[in-house]
Design a protein around this nucleic acid. Structure first.
Lengths: 198, 198
DNA sequence: ACAGTTACTGATTAGTCAGTCACTTAAATA
DNA sequence: TATTTAAGTGACTGACTAATCAGTAACTGT
């Protein structure tokens, strides 16, 4: 039921344009509480359309979530490429460092990090697991090729990336204690304006 | 109506004993799909009691989950201590390596790893976030003190620990591709009997 | 002008699940 | 034995939510 729709860009909003818009709006919504804890209604509301229409545009909540996750991975990938290319033709480890820095910058708007985390933890749903694998595959490949670093360095890159996820999830920036500093040292981003919690 | 009882069906246990038993039974149940996607009924069924009784023993589903998460962190902590102490009085990095090995062993029964993951991703619920922080605090402290390693090494330990989580979540052992090997190299556990998926 | 297509919604349904309550049964104690 | 206390459950409810459908409004080509 999806014949050719890309010709000249129409002024009126097409179904495809709405799909993309809704997916973009869905990122922060799903990023808050994840797949299972986020009703489609919330996404619809954020996008300013009726829930019924979301179900018409996507094959169920699952389809919507998968599309959102794919969008998220693609955004992350682009951010990494940009960060890496900003160094020009440098040594592999230098490029990798620049990519790390780019990833740390993403902590700024937590959404992309959190959505990945939620996608990962919903991996018991086969479609989501496959989306996660596809996204990981793209990012691992991109990082490897763009940086030219060896496997061990790439692995280290992802290990510390996952550590970022933990720090964001538990909001360790808000914890003022030695153990929290141990985990987030060097990763902590500049915007530590968050009030202190216990 | 619940045949899953022990030898003497007459004897009753105390509420406290049941609480502990139910928490232990809850670990693998919550480990499958996480907090939001797991109905209390499933836990009750696994423990061989009625859902109503679970609600009587715990302050709501949230209380049950928090108790389960705490139990999980304590198990992990003990496993790490055991692994670390098996080296006797060795150099910090040696102890840390032994702990890493102990953690990798935990991949064997995925449950403890997955429950941590689900707890982390449910951190938008304040009570869960605080439980995660308490658990992390204990483990970071234990690892630091038991190994005597410096902060950077401890941070690295947790970074690769989080990488383990990703590997287990997406079940990368079942993926036979270069990018998957890059991520799981050296972490892959011996039991790679899982059939290959795409 | 009109017919046909496409965007979009209100109303509804069927199912799930957290939590409660009145109740039964078993042990402890007097 | 009688009374009290604690373990444990069936049967409900009220709230929520994924998904559907019949329909209306807006745009398009002819």
């Amino acid at each position: 039921m999806n014949p050719a729709q890309e010709q000249h860009p129409k002024i009126r909003s097409t179904a495809e344009a709405q799909r993309q818009r809704i997916v973009a709006e869905a990122v922060p919504v799903f990023a808050r509480a994840g797949y299972h804890a986020t009703p489609v209604t919330e996404v619809a509301e954020a996008a300013g359309v009726s829930p019924a229409y979301v179900f018409r545009l996507f094959p169920g909540k699952l389809g919507l979530f998968v599309a959102t996750v794919e969008h998220c991975y693609e955004s992350v990938r682009r951010a990494l490429v940009e960060g890496g290319e900003s160094t020009g033709e440098a040594a592999p480890d230098t490029v990798l460092d620049a990519m790390s820095e780019a990833y740390i910058q993403l902590i700024g708007d937590r959404d992309l990090l959190m959505l990945q985390v939620h996608a990962q933890s919903a991996c018991d749903v086969p479609e989501i697991r496959q989306a996660v694998r596809r996204g990981l595959k793209d990012i691992v490949t991109t990082v490897s090729e763009t940086s030219g670093a060896d496997a061990a360095s790439v692995q280290r890159f992802f290990a510390y990336g996952q550590l970022c996820h933990l720090i964001v999830q538990a909001d360790l920036s808000a914890v003022d204690a030695p153990w929290a500093k141990t985990l987030s040292d060097g990763i902590r981003h500049a915007d530590d304006i968050t009030p202190k919690e216990v």
